[in-house]
Simulated scan of single mutants.
Amino acid sequence: MFKSLLNLFFPKVCYACSTLLSDNEDTICINCRHDFPVTNFHFDKDESLKKVLYGRAKIENGTALFRFEKEGPVQRLIHGLKYRGYENIGFTLGNWLGGELKDVEAYQDIDIVIPVPLHKKKLQKRGYNQVAKFGQQIALALNANYIDNALVKITNTKSQTKKTRLARWKNSEELFAMKNITAIENKHILLVDDIITTGATIEACSLVLNQAKNVKISVATMAIA
């Protein structure tokens, strides 16, 4: 009765289409789950994400859960996650992708999951890193360690959501630094982010992570544009 009363005054809605959720649904309705533009990169051994970084960053494996479509449900999800405080979206997407990756051989030797970090000022303003729960759930599924204090961002770039691909690439001077290099030595790292477009951010992070001895880097994102 209490749950029904709570739903009456604070109804749960799908973050993708805004329809009311039923009791057995959470965050995303079943219809949207079936309609999302999933990539299946990890199942099909598709190297589309690796090709984005070809010649710029050495990546062992790369996958994205969704294809990003402008004005589509994936954009609404990521926008809600980043700008409306819907942090549980990251939890849901991490469960989704983690549940799939744990059955893929290429990801079963992941040692560490590292999120692309936010600058401390942006983190303070938003209150959370939008890929934290995403990465935590993937790490849990893969029995890997989640480490969010090894890689830090030392430049505070403005939001690039309204910029073109060329403008994003030109504004890609994002600088990162390593705080504890010994923690990742001889490890297979899964670097996680929300969306990959030009690959500039992943490239910048990879350059820093590769300063550690004998590391391998794979990448997993919520979406690829």
Rank of each mutant, 00 (worst) to 15 (best):
K153C: 12
K122F: 02
K121F: 11
Q136G: 09
D148E: 08
F134L: 06
N129Q: 01
L123F: 03
L123E: 06
A132C: 13
Q136I: 08
K125I: 12
V152E: 08
N156Q: 08
P115W: 04
A132F: 10
D148R: 00
G135D: 06
D148V: 04
Y128F: 01
Q136E: 14
K133A: 05
P115K: 10
K120N: 13
K121W: 14
P115R: 02
Q124A: 14
R126I: 04
N156P: 09
A150F: 14
N149C: 10
N156S: 12
H119I: 05
Y146W: 12
D148L: 06
K122V: 05
L140W: 10
V131T: 11
A132W: 07
Y146M: 13
P117R: 02
K153P: 08
N149Y: 10
A144Y: 04
K121D: 15
A141N: 08
K121H: 15
A139V: 05
A144F: 07
I147D: 15
I154E: 07
P117T: 01
H119F: 05
H119C: 06
V116W: 00
N143W: 13
K133N: 05
V131S: 13
L118F: 02
Y146H: 09
Q124L: 14
N143A: 13
N129L: 01
N129C: 04
V116R: 01
N145G: 14
N156I: 01
F134G: 08
L140K: 11
P115S: 03
A141K: 12
Q137I: 12
Q124K: 15
Q136Y: 10
K120W: 14
A139T: 08
